[in-house]
Nucleic acid binder design. Structure first.
Lengths: 210, 210, 210, 210
DNA sequence: TATGAATGAGCATTCATTCAT
DNA sequence: AATGAATGAATGCTCATTCAT
């Protein structure tokens, strides 16, 4: 809980940027996350971020090693927290069905809480799957998938879920439908994340047909 | 065949690039589409495309006005065809349920046939919704949405589909689940687009629970 | 004689800069060599070179991959030619003594002909021995040393040269004395390279004492 | 001991950095000299020096006015000491020949004792002769040259040295051969500075030929 | 003495685009 | 249709230096 952003110290040996978790650092990271998410990572310049923060672009390098390091840190924290949360949920819930519902509620809540990180994860897939530096994202995604698949398979075995559906494909359909909502979810709109989750669950549980 | 790629001539009056539909042009566009889709639009340089085509980057400007014009043309053709197809389907089918199934089969088939255009549409949302030049994409999307919503509402009215689900939200959930498969669909894999559509329909029709 | 500057094509596979030996290229390289030599490599900016050539800095990259590539090319050609020349001399001359005199005359003539390349070789030793990309310079230097040492040892054996002097150390003393003259040699001065070589030979042959 | 490192106080009037000769200061200067010499002055960053000293780069400015001031101080002390020493030697020795030998022994011993300062003097000639702030180095070099020339001329007059060699050119050949050894002299190697000096003298005195 | 945050100028390099040939 | 040389603006990043604490 207190860890997670000391790669700079841990990795290269020689640290250049301020690795500690200062308030300024978190603030800059929040600005970067929002801009990366809304304009796209490579459409966002280091100067854009600095301008928004009210400093000069070069000053960002007092806090971070590179533009890429900022994205890395944002995604690392996001993926880490996500995995932790869903693992807890999958373990805590009594039935596979309750676990699945919990995972889904958590997903929509995550979109509500950290929309920019989710959008990044969702929109920058070309970058994230191509650049070796971001391989950890793919790895974390697989860890997340394992947890969901565990729940889905347990539910099929227990008779909660239909057994004629392929769990892997089902997981992808569910995952994509949920995470994609980050593109149109309005946190101040009519449908709040809880209600949206209920809408989705309603459809998922019983299907579309009468 | 009669329409769609003569904007360069039609619009500005300035006719620089070859507006006609030559074979070379189509070939270059295909190369661009694939690279834009796999690396991302702004991660792809004009030189990347030219290298792949075996010409120099400046020579591309004999065929196209700009890099952006290439993306515009790819998306314009894609959106145009898509709208045409789904309109035909929605009108041709007898029942809302058959129409919905038809739309879904068509979507998966589209992913199979023109994966790069779909990936572009799916991955470049930050660019597409931000840049005014791409407003036509959002406009076309709304036209597409209208067709789907028409089918969904008709189905709810006809008693085919459950009436307690909000059609707008349902549409988005379905749309996102389907189009997102472009990221993991393997055209040479075990699950071909038709089988994949059936998997999705199975889940959508009856729901996940037993 | 017609070869030597096609590393760009030979190496990476994907060439970016114009690898061919155009006249413009040679001209730019000459400008770079002079500036690198007089101001120092890292004190010379790419803009300095471009300004001197009357183009914009970015345009240099049409011809060369990088600033470092320019230095590499200058040094590679210099070292290549040097090795070729001294090998020819060592082989052509009849006696070790004639060979040594030939090598020395050639050295002073080289300083006269390509002073900037020599100065670079002489002044940028910190860079050249530290940066792995310039390892080829050290390697070539060793090849050159071999030729000189061959002559010196043959001369000692033949009784031309004193046998009580360590050939390795002798070579270094001679080499350094000669190449260092590039710092003060004036090609339009009183003492032309031939006269300067004679001065040095006079001292080297008979010593300073009466 | 009484002079040499109070320019900061003496010159501008602006007294920012600690002008006194504290131990910390000397330590920092030693670090800087080594890095300047091995990597090159402009390849060495202020942060490099600070890192090596275990402080932050900004903290260096408590001790020195600027990076350039560090180099100035290193060279000023070196040149000052050198001039003092050779003046003493030239005055103390009885004959020109003994004086010349003394100067040469002293040079090799200087390379052994303060290799980094010598390397700086030897390698940064482009910077030293170009930048007006370092004009004092050129001036000191001329003072040094005067002493050597005095010995050489006296030796020629006295019949110790051959009179057919131009003293100025001879001086340069000797000087360059000696100082250049700093690039390959190994203080822990087989040939210690005294032995190396003897090797050189052997060759210089009697020449290479038998 | 030292920190840590920031400045401001500059740097090598990239890249879409132009245009004469 | 394509080349090859160049533009001009921007980009990520570096680095000597400042200064309040």
């Amino acid at each position: 809980m207190a860890s997670s952003n000391n790669e700079a110290t841990a990795r290269g040996g020689r640290r250049r940027a301020n690795g500690g978790g200062s308030a300024r650092r978190a603030q800059l990271l929040a600005i970067a996350a929002e801009m990366f998410a809304t304009r796209g990572y490579s459409q966002t310049t280091v100067r854009d971020i600095a301008d928004e923060a009210g400093i000069l672009s070069g000053s960002l390098y007092h806090h971070f090693d590179s533009k890429e390091a900022m994205l890395t840190e944002i995604l690392r924290e996001f993926m880490g927290n996500l995995l932790q949360e869903i693992t807890d949920i999958a373990e805590a819930e009594s039935s596979p069905r309750a676990a699945l519902d919990g995972l889904i509620f958590n997903s929509f809540e995550t979109i509500h809480r950290v929309p920019f990180a989710v959008a990044l994860y969702q929109n920058e897939s070309a970058l994230l799957t191509t650049t070796p530096e971001f391989a950890f994202v793919t790895k974390s995604s697989l860890d997340v998938e394992k947890v969901w698949l565990g729940v889905l398979k347990a539910g099929a075995k227990a008779g909660d879920f239909r057994a004629d559906l392929d769990p892997g494909t089902t997981y992808r359909f569910i995952r994509d439908a949920i995470w994609s909502t980050v593109r149109w979810y309005n946190p101040r709109g009519r449908l709040q994340h809880r209600a949206l989750a209920e809408q989705y669950l309603e459809m998922l549980h019983g299907g579309l047909l009468t």
